[in-house]
């Protein structure tokens, strides 16, 4: 460890004070599964470490005004055990794919959003579900959709004095979602490609759809080019339409894995769609 000071704030206001004081020289450690490795290897050398896991007021999952609210230190394990979270099919599937049971005890969705890891399973699911984050700083609060947060980090991203206080997932009873991940092995692995689709359908025709993709660009992306091929079509038409398609939003630079990823994106989006339909989308 190379940081100079370790803080263990117990409240949101303490965290915000410290963030205000250190700004970019502080690093928030939540679950620590990503960041501690970076600190330990010397890749980042913060002046201060803010270990926020003892700020108990940030640990909750509750429903309010048609949305599920998840606190900034809530773990994946808590989410996996929560019926509120499990109602979202795609999220439930993504949660079971994250790391291993011990990792899920410490790792947090806010942490993965904070580091914007492109292959993070939960980021992919939350993006498709239209989730947003509440960002707090000493000077106030703002709400940002994950789509905005991920699509233009330089402009709309997290400021260094901000804390991800809360994640909000809107509840849409008419929608069904599904998540699929391809990895090099069947557990404890980063996605080669992951996809989450969230669909509303009527009479077998897709009325609305959101498609998110992980590990095909530096950040998790929303693939509107694929959504256009799905909406207003039947399931079979949509699956056929996305097969073999490389979405314009993808940005694959590594020539070694690019052909493989490009070959499977359409396949797994199609399969996620089928799963979402099988889960009951469009049923009355």
């Amino acid at each position: 460890m190379t940081a100079q000071t370790f803080y263990n704030p117990g409240t949101i206001s303490e965290i915000l004070d410290l963030l205000d004081e250190y700004k970019e020289e502080a690093v928030i450690v939540n679950g620590g599964t990503d960041i501690v490795e970076q600190i330990g290897s010397g890749r980042i050398r913060p002046k201060a470490i803010l270990y926020i896991r003892n700020a108990g007021e940030l640990d909750y999952i509750r429903e309010e005004n048609g949305a599920v609210l998840i606190g900034g230190i809530t773990s994946y394990r808590s989410m996996l055990e929560s019926p509120l979270c499990r109602q979202f099919g795609g999220l439930r599937q993504a949660l079971t794919e994250i790391g291993s049971p011990p990792i899920r005890v410490v790792a947090t969705p806010a942490g993965n959003i904070g580091t914007s890891a492109s292959g993070a399973d939960c980021n992919t699911a939350l993006l498709a579900l239209g989730a947003s984050v509440v960002l707090s700083s000493k000077t106030g609060e703002r709400i940002l959709t994950l789509e905005d947060l991920f699509s233009n980090p330089g402009k709309t991203g997290l400021h260094r004095n901000e804390l991800i206080r809360q994640i909000r997932i809107p509840i849409n009873k008419a929608a069904r979602s599904s998540f699929i991940k391809l990895a090099k092995r069947k557990a404890q692995d980063i996605a080669q490609v992951s996809a989450c689709v969230c669909v509303e359908a009527e009479g077998g025709i897709c009325q609305k759809v959101t498609v998110s993709l992980g590990a095909v660009a530096p950040r998790t992306i929303r693939a509107k080019s694929l959504e256009e091929k799905i909406v207003h079509r039947t399931l079979a038409e949509a699956v056929a339409a996305v097969k073999g398609i490389i979405p314009a939003e993808a940005s694959l630079r590594n020539p070694k894995n690019r052909p493989y990823k490009e070959a499977v994106i359409g396949v797994i989006v199609g399969r996620a769609l089928k799963q979402a339909y099988a889960d009951g989308v469009g049923r009355t």
Binding site: K184, R185, K186, A187, Q188, D189, I190
Partner: peptide, 11 residues
């Protein structure tokens, strides 16, 4: 071990 894969019990 994050990029050198060995089987897990699920594999």
């Amino acid at each position: 071990f994050h990029n050198y894969m060995i089987p897990t019990i699920r594999d």
